[in-house]
Structures are given as structure tokens and as C-alpha cells.
Design a protein around this nucleic acid. Structure first.
Length: 408
DNA sequence: TGGCTAATATAGTCACCCAG
DNA sequence: CTGGGTGACTATATTAGCCA
């Protein structure tokens, strides 16, 4: 019988570097002066991050160089008139690929109500007379009377700021999965236009798989609400000139639920990540890092009550005079839906290559994590501020906005 | 817009840590 | 053995950039 050998740590424990910190000295009598000189945060390091976070939840945590007090903070807020794309969590979990999700999220915006502005990529500017009154931004229809978006690959590529090849490839991938339908219109009205239709049943299924929302499952069933709407349309209004667009994804209750347009009580809202275009441009137009960075920065945004009273940032772990969040790549994967390995690569890019985030490792919860240190993250505020005030970024953002505002 | 190719990003897997 | 972590590797998928 082979005796059990106890696992031994082969890798040397990580050493925490304090070289970049401006040292302050905590109030504690338990450490000698020599100890405190070598590690000024010795006392703090004894306390686990979970306890520090618990302390922070009781009230505002003072922090050095806090992101939520930075002048550039408002540039990334969905409440401010800035452009960006809101990516629902169910979309991320249903579709792994970051670019594909970005494009589909953008298409969902086109099939949303014109009057919805906050949290979505809209300046709130009138694109043309009458804008904001329709119930759907996509106004074209194809030969089957389906509501669809008339566009071109080039135009779409400019709107999401990805290459034309990417947009084309991802649209085809989405079409193969049956989430959208692509067709060409030969009529005079949309000559040579690309027509994109949303496939209601498949999208509802995607939403149902993550949310387990029963309404989404029932809606597109046989004799379900959608089928009833369809038969009513065929019998009654098909021949009237006014309503010749067939009911589909846009008219469904599922869409309202999935995009938070349903103000029903006692139902959890659909969560997601607001990806500002600023961050997308800062991250070299890479979707995955921009997405991850947005999610991390969300944790450093202010919690606000209904009366618009700030409760301070969501992050509440205070270590080394900074605010931190304890997030592993697996947790981020659950939050945004990107595969774990992609999240890890993105974090390496953000931390190592671009220094947009700073990280360190401490023990968060000794019991849960088996005494192993967990990654703590915080935004690198000086770098972010410098990039966000870069005039090149502003110019490119303006280009994107102008493309989006230009009417079809 | 379509098609091509080289370059890059990603998904998936494995190995490892550690203490209850 | 388990479960929540880490890092590294590689085959394959995706993308940029060019030209017609």
C-alpha cells in the first residue's frame, strides 16, 4: 500500500510588493517599529478582506485616489449622455464570443423602443422628424412582412466600430444558430440593402435558458400568445395598409422582460453590463477586455438610493489606503458570461499590458478559499484619467456617434 | 461586397495548490 | 476527494488588411 504523502507547496509564496505605495502607519501597538517599517500594513494584513468588506458596508470608506471621485468618472456613466452598448447577462451566457455578443446587443438596441434612452446607446437626439414616437427603431420590412433592420455590413461595422469582416462573420454565425435571419432586398425601396430579422423563438429560448423565466418559455409555444397574435394579424389586419408588419420578436413580452422594459413588480430585473464606447476605444477596440473592464469599474461606481442620495462606491474592501474588490476570473465569468479563459486573458491584458487595473493577492475568506490568496482588483486611476482625456479618443468617439446618428 | 491569407484571439484542457 | 483558486499550453476560430 502506498502511503499517503501530504501535499507540499512547491511554489514559493508570493511576496507582496509595497514599493509603489506611499506608506502610512496604522494605529496599532501589537507590532514593533521595525516590523512596521518593513510592512506598514502588517496590522491590516492580519484581517481578512471579508471582514474589511463587512466594515466598509457600514459606512463610507475613505480611500486614496478613489475612482468614483475622479473627474473622468462621469464619462462612463450610463446616466450621462454618453454612448455605449448595454450587454445583458443572459446574452453573454448564451453566446460566449465577445464580439458576437457585442453585435447582437447592438442589434437588440435596434429592435427596442425608440423612446428608451437611458442605459442604451442613444444620445437622445432626434435623428429625423418623428423620431422617438415609433415602437421600434427598425422600420423596414422584408417580403414576408417581417419587421427588419435595413442596413449594410459597412454601416453596421462603423456603428459598432469593428471591422467589416468581423461583422459579416459574426452575423453569419448568428444566422447559423438561428438567432437572426439575413436576407437581401431587391426592391427599389431598399436597393441592395441587407435585411436583418430577429428570430423570436430562438432569442426567447436563449433568454429562458439563463433566466428560467416562464413567460419566455410559454410565449412562442403552440397556441401561445405569439401564435394568437399571429393568427389575429393574418385574419384581421394583414390587408389593411396601416399594419402590414408581422408580429415577431419586437412585439413579444419576452423582449420587454429581457431588456427591462416590463415594469412588473416582484420580478427581478434583467442584469447586464454597460460597456461605454470610451472603454472600448481605450482597450484597442477589443471587446472582451472592454467588457471585463466595464464590469470591474461598475463595482467602483456609486450606489444611489431612489432619492439620489449616494451611498458610496459598491467596492468596500479597504486595504493599503485604497478600495479593492475581490474577484476571481471564475466569478467574473459568472457575472458577465464570457468563458473563464477569456476573462483571464483579458485581465492579463488589462493588468499587465495596459496597467488599467492594479491587482494584488490577499486572503479573502480563509474557510471558503482554503487559505489561499484571492485576486483583488482596483482601477489604476491616473492611467484611466490620462487615457480618457486623450483627444484622439474623443475624436474617434465623435466619429462613432456621428455614424450612429446619421439617419438611414 | 467578396475573397484571400497571415496574424491574433479564444476555448478547452491539463497540472497544480490547499485544508477540511 | 473536493471545490475554489491559479497558470500554461495548443488546436482551432476569428480578425485585419489588402485587392478587385
Amino acid at each position: 500500500m502506498i502511503p499517503k504523502t501530504k501535499n507540499k507547496r512547491q511554489v514559493a509564496p508570493r511576496k507582496i510588493s509595497y514599493s509603489n505605495e506611499i506608506h502610512g502607519f496604522p494605529e496599532s501597538d501589537n507590532f514593533s517599529t521595525e516590523e512596521l517599517k518593513s510592512n506598514p500594513f502588517a496590522h491590516e494584513d492580519l484581517i481578512e478582506s471579508r471582514s474589511l468588506a463587512h466594515e466598509g458596508r457600514k459606512g463610507l470608506v475613505p480611500s486614496k485616489n478613489p475612482w468614483h471621485e475622479s473627474p473622468q468618472y462621469r464619462l462612463l456613466s450610463p446616466e450621462e449622455p454618453n454612448t455605449g452598448i448595454w450587454i445583458p447577462r443572459w446574452l453573454g451566457h448564451g453566446i460566449g464570443n465577445a464580439n458576437r455578443t457585442r453585435i447582437l446587443a447592438w442589434l437588440l438596441w435596434w429592435f427596442d423602443e425608440e423612446s428608451t434612452r437611458s442605459r442604451f446607446a442613444d444620445r437622445g437626439v432626434e435623428r429625423f422628424p418623428g423620431y422617438g414616437r415609433e415602437l421600434c427603431r427598425a422600420r423596414a420590412k422584408n417580403a414576408n412582412h417581417d419587421r427588419c433592420l435595413g442596413t449594410t455590413y459597412t454601416r453596421l461595422a462603423q456603428e459598432v466600430n469593428l471591422s467589416k469582416t468581423t461583422v459579416k462573420g459574426q452575423l453569419q454565425a448568428l444566422a447559423e444558430r438561428g438567432l437572426i435571419q439575413i436576407s437581401r432586398n431587391d426592391s427599389r425601396q431598399h436597393d441592395g440593402d441587407l435585411l436583418i430579422t430577429m428570430c423570436g423563438p430562438q432569442l426567447a429560448d436563449l433568454y429562458y435558458q439563463f433566466s428560467k423565466d416562464k413567460i419566455a418559455k410559454d410565449e412562442f409555444e403552440e397556441n401561445g400568445p405569439h401564435a394568437q397574435r399571429l393568427s389575429r394579424w393574418e385574419n384581421d389586419v394583414k390587408d389593411l395598409c396601416k399594419a402590414r408588419i408581422k408580429p415577431g420578436w419586437f412585439e413579444s413580452n419576452t423582449r420587454r422582460r429581457a431588456l427591462n422594459r416590463d415594469s412588473q413588480a416582484n420580478f427581478p430585473t434583467s442584469k447586464g453590463t454597460w460597456v461605454p464606447d470610451y472603454l472600448f476605444l481605450i482597450c484597442d477596440k477589443k471587446s472582451a477586455p472592454a467588457w471585463v473592464l466595464s464590469q470591474v469599474l461598475w463595482w467602483f461606481s456609486d450606489r444611489v438610493t431612489r432619492d439620489a442620495i449616494s451611498l458610496g462606491p459598491r467596492a468596500c474592501i479597504k486595504r493599503h489606503r485604497h478600495l479593492w474588490i475581490a474577484k476571481s476570473s471564475r466569478q467574473l465569468n459568472q457575472e458577465i458570461g464570457l468563458p473563464e479563459s477569456t476573462v483571464r486573458t483579458s485581465l492579463n491584458y488589462l493588468i499587465g499590458e495596459r496597467q488599467l487595473l492594479t491587482f494584488d493577492k490577499w486572503i479573502y475568506d480563509r474557510k471558503r478559499d482554503r487559505s489561499q490568496p484571492m485576486t483583488h482588483l482596483r482601477p489604476n486611476v491616473p492611467v484611466l484619467e490620462q487615457l480618457l482625456s486623450n483627444s484622439d479618443i474623443h475624436d474617434e468617439l465623435l466619429d462613432m456617434e456621428m455614424t450612429r446618428l446619421y439617419p438611414y
